[in-house]
């Protein structure tokens, strides 16, 4: 399988990365080189093979159902580019 310029632009939008025409053209070639490289996986007979979900057989640890952390609103917003009274500020999303 390979990608064309349109697909690259669509994927870039899905990934929320703005691309120029020039970027998209360069990326098309690069992505096709990588997709060409991974193509060889199709040779592998995977009939009856379970996809891996975890490298070490382990049971998900469950945390105690209790409040162990919190009251850190100021810490959480401390690194944000725009805030107001412990809220993150973003461009208007609702008219």
């Amino acid at each position: 399988m390979s990608v064309d310029l349109q697909t690259v632009k669509r994927v870039a939008h899905l990934a929320r990365i703005a691309v120029s025409e020039e970027d998209a053209e360069r990326m098309t070639g690069e992505l096709n080189a990588i997709l060409g490289f991974v193509e060889q996986l199709n040779e592998v007979d995977v009939a009856g093979v379970e996809p891996m979900t975890s490298v070490t057989p382990m049971e998900m640890k469950k945390r105690q159902d209790a409040v162990t952390d919190g009251n850190k609103a100021a810490d959480i917003v401390a690194n944000a580019p725009a805030t107001d009274e412990n809220f993150f500020l973003v461009p208007k999303v609702v008219e």
């Binding site: 929320r16 944000a80 580019p81 461009p91 208007k92 999303v93």
Partner: peptide
Amino acid sequence: DGVRYGLRVPGKDIIDMYE
């Protein structure tokens, strides 16, 4: 995504800002 930490480049709407 320019909201919680790090770099933010302004855009005409939120999607444009992300991209």
